[in-house]
């Protein structure tokens, strides 16, 4: 067992137990062990007993901030849409937050999706999460029956094999380029601060595509999205996507058709990424949950890179700075215009 992560797990359990017993929070969003090896499942703990099931490890690949706005809403007393909020404090929710998760919480705060006084953040430094596909390719896709983590390695075994894999070889690509492994907002700390990672190039994939010719880029894009089955898992899992009706579900006008026509799939991907412009935290949830292994994070990374180049800011890192697309400067570049 990883010493670091089991210590964090212990701290989470005792802290959450205390918060839930004292009824300081009504629920806590964290993770429990999944049913398959190397998986962790998002979980809402609502009683002190639930808290004993919480875990933290390198398999927590889904950004739990996605559950925050709907969970807070569900804890409000039922009322009609036009009725005012009831007097007095509303139930609070606790949440576990690493660097990028806390950035998403910070963005939700800035976008008025959640109220700061109703959220209790348990912050932890994060050493990165494991990409199942990378593990799979190392063990040639054999079925893993058992897996456990050590501090810098994971050990996987199955029928006729047992291997120890270095953690840094199987971290997700977004974790390898993470610039913010420690939480930007928190109320309680669990575990220690982790050192900032040395990231020489934050956008290696974007650079690679940018260096191609126009036709090659189009070829790459069409090839990349060709297997998309439009399950919208990448949208559902994203903490930025809280629109009551997403553009993909609009029927009049129908921005994207329901068909698998490449034009529809292309528009879906461009718009989904564009809606995350200046907001994406590179948490990697979208890419992780894609059943078809599509690297759609390249598109949001391209936008992040451009936002840094053009406007010098990045979402969620500094919670006092306005989000890049909710502000402007008179001197913004406009040399792209005719």
């Amino acid at each position: 067992m990883s010493q670091i992560n089991s210590k964090i797990t212990e701290e989470i359990r005792s802290k959450v137990k205390a918060l839930l017993s004292a009824e300081e929070i009504a629920a806590f969003v964290g993770f429990i062990d999944g049913t398959l090896p190397m998986t962790a499942r998002p979980f809402t703990a609502r009683s002190p007993e639930d808290a004993d099931r919480l875990v933290f490890n390198s398999f927590c690949v889904v950004n739990p901030a996605v559950y925050l706005p709907p969970l807070l809403k569900s804890l409000e007393p039922p009322r009609r849409p036009t009725d005012p909020l009831p007097e007095g404090p509303l139930p609070k929710v606790g949440i576990l937050a690493t660097g990028c998760w806390s950035r998403n919480i910070s963005i939700q705060l800035q976008e008025n999706q959640i109220a700061r006084e109703r959220v209790v953040v348990l912050g932890t430094g994060c050493r990165g999460m494991v990409d199942m596909r990378k593990v799979g390719s190392i063990i040639d896709g054999r079925e893993i029956e058992k897996a456990y983590e050590l501090d810098d390695r994971i050990s996987v075994s199955g029928k006729g094999f047992s291997e120890e894999i270095l953690l840094e070889d199987v971290l997700r690509d977004n974790c390898l380029t993470c610039i913010c492994p420690n939480p930007v907002i928190m109320d309680h700390r669990v575990g220690g601060q982790v050192p900032d990672r040395r990231v020489d190039n934050r956008f290696p994939f974007v650079d690679e595509i940018e260096s191609k010719s126009l036709d090659k880029r189009w070829e790459w894009f069409q090839n990349e999205i060709s297997s998309c089955i439009r399950c919208y898992a990448c949208r559902n899992v994203c903490p930025l996507c809280y629109c009551p009706t997403c553009f993909v579900d609009d029927s009049r006008p129908q921005w994207v058709g329901k068909s698998l026509d490449p034009a529809d799939t292309s528009i879906f991907h461009i718009l989904r990424a564009f809606h995350c412009a200046g907001r994406c935290t590179n948490c990697g949830s979208c890419e992780t949950v894609c059943p078809m292994g599509i690297n759609m994070r390249v598109l949001t990374s391209k936008l992040t890179k451009d936002v840094i180049d053009l406007y010098g800011t990045e979402a969620g890192v500094d919670s006092d700075a306005p989000l890049p697309l909710t502000t402007y400067s008179e001197t913004d570049r406009q040399d792209f215009m005719v």
């Binding site: 974007v206 595509i209 940018e210 126009l214 880029r217 189009w218 894009f221 292309s266 461009i270 990424a273 564009f274 412009a277 200046g278 598109l299 391209k302 936008l303 451009d306 936002v307 053009l310 406007y311 890049p324 697309l325 402007y328 913004d332 570049r333 406009q334 792209f336 215009m337």
Partner: peptide, 13 residues
């Protein structure tokens, strides 16, 4: 700001 980013993105793809 939005136009600048959109133009870059669609040229990127």
């Amino acid at each position: 700001r939005r136009f600048a980013l959109l133009k870059n993105l669609i040229e990127f793809i």
